[in-house]
Nucleic acid binder design. Structure first.
Lengths: 335, 335
DNA sequence: CTGTTAGCGCCTTCAG
DNA sequence: CTGAAGGCGCTAACAG
């Protein structure tokens, strides 16, 4: 495989001149440039970015570490990040943690070894230790979707508390008084924040802790199904459900259906995250929709600014609003 | 940032010894190893893989170049590729071409410069030139989903011809005689193969070219919508539609609905690619489902074998079967 | 406008 | 079991 030296020799110039041509840097006479370009063509020379990166300490590569690209919410974020990165001349390494701390740690290790210029991370646990390692290596880090309390870190997320509040407020407004929440894992900020929104809405309606009915599970369909089953089995049955994400919503719906009940007649259902409208004939769920594309975009722009050293010194915390989309699953007025 | 040399100095050994500890290579006394590991810990040393890759000519990085991660079919493939790569200690750079040759070329260029160990490519155009560049650099390449006629290249794809045949055969069996096909772009092998399957089924039923009604468009929803509109406007209306992928199917469905007609009563509809069952309450479309996860897995395993120099010399061509899933959109017997 | 020197951080080769 | 020398391919700094 040809190197700058081979090209230089063939063109009768020095290696550095070849480098200048490749990178459009410094002054080069048209004639020399022509000779070099011709040599490059003849040799089929492809510059070795590894060597360049080693020298410049910049790889033009970002890492996107998320839980599971298969969730359409993350799919959109990934697409958005790749778009923004690509526009700026960066590539993106994709990593799925499946909410496993062990996987996350493995990935982060390798990514730092590969000297990615920045990491976009959806942290599995919202603890200081998660990010300590990355920060200690002075690699720019932007936390997406979740936040880590008590640590100075750039983060881009949605207003989970507000979205949760709005959905539950909607249910209350329709007359529901027994509203159960099917949450994600405790300790994951997006789950916790949505619970907080749920609580605030109940409190505001004069309902106290006795009226709270919260199940904690995972952000997947099976967990949603199981939590819904428990809800149906337990004590006095709620009349409405608030599910903490799209998969939990689907699982809950199926459990209700499998129990021979109907949404929304027998059980109103609202949830976080819209499903991709393009793939669904007849959208049914009332949701708090997150601007996934915008999130990815802003996170990427922020980290690219950090990489370029152009971002303000203080840590940025960007919180985007959710949009409440009312459809049939929330039903009409209750009673 | 610490280097092997720093670690070596602190541990009172030579750099190469540190290297041996890091890579578990060669013989090291327990005691020396202990000292080195302690030094690594103290310094927070993170090995620089760039330098290592430069030396070893291996990056442990693959590239996945596809059209659009947002299509659930590709989402699944991406997940699968990342899973298999990760298991083998490789990372994956994700690239979306949006079916643009220019984008594709840009990506391939940068990827080769970054010295990825292999490229998994969904080629925008099925021409020899597309892959020539990569092959000329001796970088392992596996073509996914499509194939490039007349070139020796590893490829993993589905039996598009067979799937198309089966779907159209199904329609014919239900009595349909006027069946239109809404295809993807001519020159993209998956589209062409599906058209071939359509033709074979018609021919076998004794219908000649006069009975063919084929529209060529793009693999997206808007194109599906537009092709369907044309179909509805043009001459004698068909009674059944074969759409070449999931997005075209959705677009066609919406056009039919917007025209005040019903699927399947007024128009039967079958298509390629199942939609993610997990996200859909009540699957409706009769489809030829492709084993996306399996495709990604096999493609990745093949390319990893090539990288390791363990694959058979001759080029591999893996063709996976589709599964016909009959649902309501294909209707009952016609007439 | 062009070239020389040196080094980014690592590992292979060959000695000890 | 450990080390010294050299080079992977590139570019910054400094000359000219």
């Amino acid at each position: 495989m040809a190197t700058v030296r081979d090209v230089a020799k063939l063109a009768g110039v020095s290696p550095i001149t070849v480098s200048r041509v490749i990178n459009n840097a410094g002054y080069i006479s048209q004639e020399t440039r022509g000779r070099v370009e011709e040599a490059i063509r003849q040799l089929g020379y492809v510059p070795n970015t590894l060597a360049r990166s080693l020298r410049l300490r910049q790889t033009n590569t970002l890492a996107l570490v998320l839980t599971d690209i298969t969730n359409p919410f993350w799919t959109t974020v990934a697409r958005s990040v790749e778009d923004a990165a690509s526009d700026a001349g960066f590539n993106v390494i994709l990593c799925n943690t499946d909410e496993s701390e062990i996987e996350q740690e493995k990935y982060l290790n390798v990514l730092l070894q590969k000297r990615v210029d920045g990491v976009l991370l959806v942290p599995v646990r919202c603890t200081r230790e998660t990010v300590q390692f990355i920060q200690s290596q002075n690699v720019p880090l932007v936390v997406i979707d979740r936040h880590i309390p008590g640590v100075e870190i750039d983060s881009v997320r949605c207003d989970s508390e507000g979205g949760g509040y709005a959905l539950v407020h909607l249910m209350l407004g329709q007359g529901h008084r027994r509203i159960a929440m099917l949450s994600g894992p405790q300790g994951v900020s997006s789950a916790d924040d949505r619970v907080a929104g749920y609580r605030r809405a109940l409190a505001e309606a004069g309902l106290d802790h006795q009226n709270e009915l919260i199940f904690y599970g995972e952000f997947n369909q099976q967990s949603g199904y199981e939590m819904m089953q428990k809800t149906l089995d337990a004590g006095p049955r709620p009349t409405a459900i608030f599910a903490a994400n799209n998969f939990i919503t689907m699982g809950a719906f199926k459990a209700v259906r499998d129990a021979g009940l109907k949404v929304p007649e027998d059980m109103a259902l609202v949830g976080f995250d819209d499903l991709p409208v393009d793939l669904i004939i007849d959208p049914f769920f009332t949701v708090a929709s997150q601007p996934a594309y915008e999130m990815g975009k802003q996170a990427t722009e922020l980290i690219l600014a950090r990489v370029a050293g152009q971002a303000p010194a203080e840590c940025q915390e960007i919180i985007l609003p959710t949009e409440i989309i009312v459809r049939r699953s929330s039903g009409e007025k209750y009673r």
